[in-house]
């Protein structure tokens, strides 16, 4: 489980420098996130925006690369941190992916995993300049139709069938918010309604330990502790069963039982 109170013994030999490394690694990560984006990635985003016939696909691929190198950098400079991602997760496609949520790192970890990815983003992020442009051009969906986002939501939902057929992944955190104690909270029905509407399989995955790297309520990365971050594939729930479409409630029950299963 993602137990936040687990023992986090500092790796021998790092006790003295851990506070310094926490700060230095956090600064490097944020520099990549900001300056790295502007210097190394923004020209490609602009080029894709101007010249690509499939700019949405291009944006999604750039997002994946940007976050892939983010995690590669963080893993490379953080003592004790490892990432484990099985081939069974990488190979997921044409599916609604449902995942537990324990850290702000979870969405970007999933973006770094899937070449063609969409997700549902809190509607307030669509008010932030530049970020809003990136989200829209990437084909991500707003969480509500407030703030004039109804047209965007309609457009994206209309394209969802094709997106899923073209090996796309729509990943959603059905709890809607981060779990503070690792337990699975109340599930919202949106992901399951979409899977039902488009007859898409629901692949259930579990993220572990991102909350130990970037802890809720803290600004600094937690380094110098043994921390294997992983994504596991827990199973698949298919909305179509024996020629019948399962109810949203049944899909939610089956998904919850997979999410709660012990390893």
């Amino acid at each position: 489980m993602n137990n936040p109170s687990r023992s986090e013994a500092v790796i021998p030999g790092f006790k003295m420098i851990k506070p310094v490394l926490d700060v230095v690694i956090t600064i490097i990560a944020w520099l990549y996130y900001t300056l790295g984006f502007v210097l190394f990635f923004s020209p490609f985003y602009v080029a894709v925006s101007l010249f690509s016939k499939e700019s949405e696909r291009g944006f999604q691929n750039l997002n994946r690369l940007f976050y892939h190198y983010f995690f590669k950098l963080v893993a490379g400079i953080t003592p004790g941190l490892t990432f484990r991602l099985s081939e069974s997760v990488r190979s997921i496609h044409s599916s609604v992916v449902v995942c537990n949520h324990v850290s702000y790192l979870d969405p970007i970890l999933l973006i770094s995993t899937f070449p063609r990815q969409k997700t549902i983003v809190k509607h307030t992020f669509f008010r932030v300049p530049i970020l809003s442009w990136l989200l829209k051009r990437s084909g991500y969906l707003p969480s509500t139709t407030q703030d004039g986002l109804d047209v965007l939501m309609i457009e994206q939902m209309q394209k969802m069938d094709t997106f899923l057929q073209e090996r796309g992944v729509l990943f959603i955190f059905p709890e809607g918010t981060r779990s503070r104690d690792g337990r699975i909270g109340r599930l919202n029905s949106g992901a399951f309604k979409i899977a039902r509407q488009f007859h898409a399989p629901i692949t259930v995955v579990r993220i572990r330990n991102t909350n130990h790297l970037f802890r809720p309520g803290r600004f600094r990365f937690n380094t110098c502790v043994t921390n294997p971050v992983s994504i596991e594939r827990l199973g698949v729930v298919n909305p179509d069963e024996n020629g019948q479409i399962l109810s949203t409630t049944e899909l939610m029950t089956r998904t919850r039982s997979l999410m709660q299963a012990d390893p």
Binding site: T144, D150, M157, K193
Partner: peptide, 12 residues
């Protein structure tokens, strides 16, 4: 009935 925007788009 918790009919939301996802349902509304399906209804369209």
């Amino acid at each position: 009935y918790e009919f939301d925007s996802i349902d509304a788009i399906g209804l369209l």
